[in-house]
C-alpha cells in the first residue's frame, strides 16, 4: 500500500519537473522581490532614528534569502490539479480508487512542492551569495545551527504539506467557494514570517509568535540559520513544528472523512 503512495509522489514530481522554464522565471521573480525588500529594510536600519533591536541588518538580509529558499512551503495555494478535480467533479473518480483519499492527495501535494524547491528556490538562494555587499546572503551563523536547520526544513515541509491538506479538506466543500481556504492561507502566510521576520514584530507578541502553528513553516528554520535561535533551543522549535503537524493531520483527516460522506460531485 505504501508503495502506491510513493509511486504517486514520484509520478507527480517527475510530471512537474517538465515545467523547468516556468520555475526558473519564478526564481527571477523571487530574486527581484527580495532585492526590493532588502532595499526597504536597509533604509530603516541605516537611517531611522528609533532604537531598533530584535535582529541585526545582516540577520534580516539572510532571513529574507532563507525565506526565498523556503518559498516552496508557501501555505497559500492548494494543489492546482486537486482544485480542478474538486470543481470539475473528477473527484468522483478519485474516490473510486482503492487508496485512502487523504494520503493519496497528501503525496500529490507534497510532490508538487519539490520542483518549486529545486528550480525556483534553490537557484535563487545560491545566486544570492554572489550579490554585492549589502544584498548578499551570508553563510549560516554556526555549523551547529546549520546542522539543525536541515531537520527543521524537513519538519517545515511536513508541517506545510499537512496544513495544505487541511486547506484541501476545507475546500472539498465546494459550494463555499475559495473564501474560507484563502482566509486560512492568509493567516498562514502572515504568521509564518513571510511579511516581516517574526522577531521584528512587537516584543510582547514574541512568546505567542513562537508557539503558534505557522512559525514552523518559515521562521523557525530561518532563526536557526541566522543564529537568532541558539542551537541549544532548537528542540523547542522542532517540537512546535512536529506538534502542529500532528494536529493538522488529525484535523485534516477528520474534516476530509466527514466531507467525503456528504460530498456533492459537480459537473459531468
Amino acid at each position: 500500500m505504501r508503495k502506491a503512495y510513493l509511486s504517486i509522489f514520484r509520478i507527480r514530481a517527475a510530471e512537474s519537473f517538465q515545467y523547468r522554464i516556468a520555475a526558473l522565471s519564478g526564481s527571477l521573480t523571487s530574486f527581484l522581490w527580495a532585492v526590493i525588500e532588502i532595499a526597504a529594510f536597509t533604509v530603516f536600519f541605516k537611517y531611522a532614528r528609533g532604537p531598533g533591536g530584535g535582529l541585526t541588518l545582516e540577520q534580516t538580509v539572510s532571513h529574507i534569502w532563507v525565506r526565498e529558499l523556503l518559498l516552496f512551503l508557501q501555505p497559500y495555494n492548494i494543489d492546482g490539479d486537486l482544485l480542478g478535480k474538486l470543481t470539475s467533479g473528477d473527484v468522483g473518480v478519485e474516490l473510486c480508487r482503492p487508496l485512502d483519499l487523504y494520503w493519496h492527495w497528501f503525496a500529490r501535494t507534497s510532490a508538487g512542492k519539490l520542483v518549486v524547491f529545486v528550480m525556483r528556490c534553490l537557484v535563487c538562494f545560491l545566486v544570492a551569495f554572489l550579490l554585492p555587499g549589502g544584498f548578499a546572503a551570508r553563510p549560516p551563523a554556526s555549523p551547529a545551527g546549520f546542522l539543525l536547520f536541515v531537520p527543521a526544513v524537513l519538519c517545515a515541509f511536513l508541517l506545510c504539506s499537512s496544513f495544505l491538506m487541511l486547506m484541501t479538506a476545507v475546500r472539498t466543500n465546494i459550494t463555499w467557494g475559495d473564501g474560507p481556504m484563502y482566509l486560512l492561507g492568509l493567516a498562514g502566510g502572515l504568521l509564518s514570517g513571510g511579511y516581516l521576520p517574526l522577531q521584528l514584530w512587537p516584543g510582547f507578541m514574541q512568546p505567542f509568535l513562537l508557539l503558534q502553528p505557522f512559525a514552523g513553516i518559515c521562521d523557525i528554520p530561518a532563526r536557526l540559520y541566522i543564529g537568532s535561535m541558539e542551537p541549544s533551543e532548537a528542540w523547542l522549535g522542532i517540537a512546535v513544528q512536529l506538534f502542529w503537524s500532528v494536529v493538522f493531520i488529525a484535523v485534516g483527516r477528520f474534516i476530509m472523512a466527514r466531507r467525503v460522506k456528504t460530498l456533492v460531485v459537480q459537473g459531468g
Partner: peptide
Amino acid sequence: IMVLQVLVVAVTDPIGTVLMFARFGS
C-alpha cells in the same frame, strides 16, 4: 468571505512597514 479575505489582504499587506516604523521610528 472572499470580500473579507481581500480586505484582510489589503489591510495586512503594509503591516510589515507599519511594524518597522513602530520599531524604528521615522
